[in-house]
Each structure stands twice: as C-alpha cells, then as structure tokens.
Design a protein around this nucleic acid. Structure first.
Lengths: 161, 161
DNA sequence: CCGATTCCCGAGTAAAATACTCAGGTTTCA
DNA sequence: TGAAACCTGAGTATTTTACTCGGGAATCGG
C-alpha cells in the first residue's frame, strides 16, 4: 500500500498553489524550483488537475496556474483521484469482481470506501494550516532570493488532525 | 493507492486458515483450490507469514499450516506487513527523507500512521465474523465435495466494523 | 523401507506499471 | 517579435509485480 509519485507530487504542487497563488497565478517553473519536481512531469500532472477542474490556467507570458476553488473546498481525495491515483484496494482483475467475488472482496471494497471518506474529509486548507507545512513553507520562501515571505496568520494551527 | 496481490492473497489465505484450520492443520493445496490461488505462489507467501510468526507448519504428509495465535490476536496490519506490503505512503527516495523532508513529508508519515492504526485495529476474527465472509465460506464449503460445512455460530454478526 | 504428500527454498522471468523525458505547438505579454 | 508560459502526444528506461520452476527435506501410511 503505497502512493505513486503522481499522487504525492500532485498534492505537493496543489499545496504550493494554495500557499503562493493567493493573489495571481504561479508558473510551473516556480513550483518546479520550490518543490524540486521536474517541470515536464509537473506539466503532465497539471493536465489531469485541470481536467478535473481543480486548477485554472492562464496562458502566455506571466501565465500560470491557480486553484479553481477555495482551498477548503478541495480535498486530498479530490487531488489524488485527479492525479489518477485510484483509492481502491479491491482486486479488479479476472479472478474477482462484484459478481463473482473472492472471500475478501467485500472487505477491500469496504476498506477502500473508508479510506476514501477519510481522505475526502481532509481539505487542502486543513493541510496548509498545519504547523509542519507552515514552517516548511517559510523555509522555502526564505531560501528563495528576492521573495518576501507572506504568511497566513492562523490561530487554529494543528498537526494535520 | 492500491494493494498488491501479495497482501490480498495473504489475508484471504489467513482467513481460510481461520475458517478451516480449527481442529488440525490445512494443506496449501486445499487453500489453493478453495481460494483459487496458485500453489507455488501460496508457498512463497507462507514463507513470509511463517517468518513473521503468524502461522505454524507441520511438515510431511497430512501436514499443513495453522494459525500460530488466536484469530483475535492477528490484525490485518500484521498480515499485510508480514506479506511485505508496506503501509507507508511517504516518499522514501532520494528527494525526501526525515532529515530533508519535502513540503508534504509530514503529511504522509502522519497519514501512514493513521492507516496503520486503523488496519491494526481489525482482527482476523472481526473479519471472519462478518456476514459477507460467513456466506462466502458456506458457499465454498458446499461447493467442495465430501466436505461437511462446519460453522461458528455467532450472535455478533456484523458487516466488517 | 518406499512412495506419496507436504512443507521448504533460491532463483529466474514475462508482463505491467512507474516515472519520467522529449519534441514540438499555441497563447500572451512587453 | 521574442521570450515566457501553457499545452499535447508519444516514447522509453527502470522498477515492480506476479508469478513459475526445479529441486530438497520431513513425515505418514502401508
């Protein structure tokens, strides 16, 4: 049970947008440098994120991406699914289906649903507010030359929940 | 986020033991036939399950496997880990470690822990008691020729959780 | 004691999935 | 007009998965 880089990078990139695309859009070059993710891979990922309606794009010079909705309305599950990371533990092959299930089929279906619900209950905003991310983000901003860090002062800091 | 067949088969096989190895041990040939899992693959899986101390084996003719502990003392997490199915969503590569974490590193570590705890809270006994599994097991027993179905009559039937 | 049955073990391998890259095109700003 | 960005399809090396195979060692029944 692991996550592919697609899913992980997608969440990281979306978090980057949530942190930096407050006023106007942010280019993938910026995201790429801040999060050390290859530019071409990011472009590929953002195709999916856009198709899923999670981000809007602005073409041309000074263009970039921004969140299509408020960060509180985007869940971890939304991002993972968009990044084509299935949240499905069940066996979808030849041996076992909903019609001819194996002994544990129901278990996996059930478990997948619970995981989905869990991941769906965590919004991008929840993540961004966490102490870990806040400090990481500050570091990334400071490291960047000529970029004055701007932060959301937040009283409800938490450790992910 | 998906499960490999290793993990899935391991749980299925352990469930089979819990259902059928009540009195004496059960051979992998039987498990293989009942659950339609290749024998040689099962043998490979049971190496790990044994190494992890989840099953005991009896060699020679009339030999086989049985649970090493009570089914209520074996958790889903135990089985998955034994079957060498990592419950780890974090990025363990070059880019990101506990020392030099990426923006989302903490998130994945945290999430992994929560998933682990969840899977660790479900015992083999919980699964075996579920209505789905009970009916599936009955079907499998009836299909088998010359095998009189024996069931655990249980008042606390549930649908997984 | 012999042969069937079963666990045990190391190693190999085809197919699938992953994690990318690359080459080009289009839109927009200055 | 040219640089900066998004956009797109396709290709590909590497890794992982899901097995198989061949042989060995214990144990039981006859």
């Amino acid at each position: 049970m692991k996550l592919t880089t697609k899913g992980r990078y997608a969440v990281t990139a979306m978090m980057d947008l949530a942190l930096h695309a407050k006023i106007d859009c942010v280019s993938l070059v910026d995201v790429s440098e801040r999060q050390t993710i290859s530019l071409s891979y990011l472009e590929q990922l953002f195709r999916n994120l856009k198709k899923a309606g999670l981000v809007n794009s602005v073409r041309g010079a000074k263009g970039g991406y921004m969140l299509a909705k408020a960060d509180k309305d985007i869940s971890l599950a939304d991002i993972l699914v968009a990044a084509d990371e299935q949240i499905n533990l069940a066996c979808g092959g030849s041996a076992c289906s909903d019609e001819t299930p194996c002994l544990t089929h129901g278990l996996w279906v059930n478990l997948s649903q619970q995981f989905y619900q869990f991941l769906n209950s965590k919004s991008l905003n929840d993540l961004v507010k966490s102490r870990d991310v806040q400090t990481m983000a500050t570091m990334q901003d400071v490291t960047q030359i000529g970029n004055i860090p701007v932060h959301i002062s937040n009283d409800t800091e938490n450790d992910y929940v």
